[in-house]
Design a protein around this nucleic acid. Structure first.
Length: 212
DNA sequence: CTGGGGATGTACT
DNA sequence: GTACATCCCCAGG
């Protein structure tokens, strides 16, 4: 920390404020970076589970060939073309759900993929859903793991993030934020090299080493 | 610690 | 049919 004085964590007050739509109605790189440290909350009949976002990626279709929206408006990508502040949820590789924040403005298919969380509330619930101890690092250190821990599925497709079930809470500023290329988008040509992944440095729940 | 491979379902060539 | 914005387990060093 003394080595890195610009990156010390600031402790402010402890109020839990739901982020308004104006948070999402901004350029995707800004929202992706500012999402680090915010708390993702999902309330279900089972109870509440929540975690700090420690890793996220920006997807900027239709130009960005890594973005699903680069293929145009389809039934799958429709939520990304809609108004900001909604969830774009999709299934990858047949068994993992991933959640994105739809951002920018309506008709602009930009989104922020949440790639890792640090568990904050509902640890027992998350542990039960994952079949792991509540202290396990792999409770929420990947995009498909965190959705399982929070019970986010296709049923949450298009959900309004300004509602009462699924939303972001404001929080204290995060520690030092690192940047890298996005994960597993090698197929996207030159877009694969864009440094559009953001993560909290040194956090044990970040999914993979920053330079990967 | 690292790397390889299988599971699995949907979107859309 | 092919390609995934992944996860988990196992083998090997």
């Amino acid at each position: 920390m003394a080595r890195n004085p610009g990156c010390t964590k600031q402790i402010l007050n402890e109020s839990a404020i739901k982020l308004p739509r104006s948070f999402y109605s901004r350029p995707v790189l800004i929202v992706a970076r500012e999402s680090i440290g915010k708390i993702l909350v999902h309330r279900t009949p089972e109870g509440e589970a929540a975690g700090r976002i420690v890793e996220a990626e920006a997807y900027r279709g239709p130009l960005d060939l890594a973005a699903h929206s680069s293929r145009g408006l389809t039934r799958r990508t429709a939520a990304m073309f809609g108004p900001p502040g909604h969830a774009y949820v999709y299934l990858v590789y047949g068994l993992s759900w991933c959640i994105n924040l739809v951002v920018a403005s309506e008709g602009e298919p930009h989104a922020v993929l949440i790639r890792a969380l640090e568990p904050v509330r509902g640890l027992d619930l998350m542990a039960r859903r994952r079949g792991l101890p509540a202290t396990a690092r792999n409770l929420t250190n990947g995009p498909g793991k965190l959705t399982q821990a929070l019970a986010i599925t296709g049923a949450d497709y298009g959900r309004d993030l300004c509602g009462d079930e699924l939303f972001l809470e404001d929080s204290n500023p995060p520690g030092c934020i690192g940047r890298s290329k996005r994960i597993n988008v090698a197929y996207a040509g030159k877009w694969a090299d864009k440094p559009w992944r953001f993560y909290e440095r040194g956090n044990r729940y970040v999914s993979v080493k920053p330079w990967d």
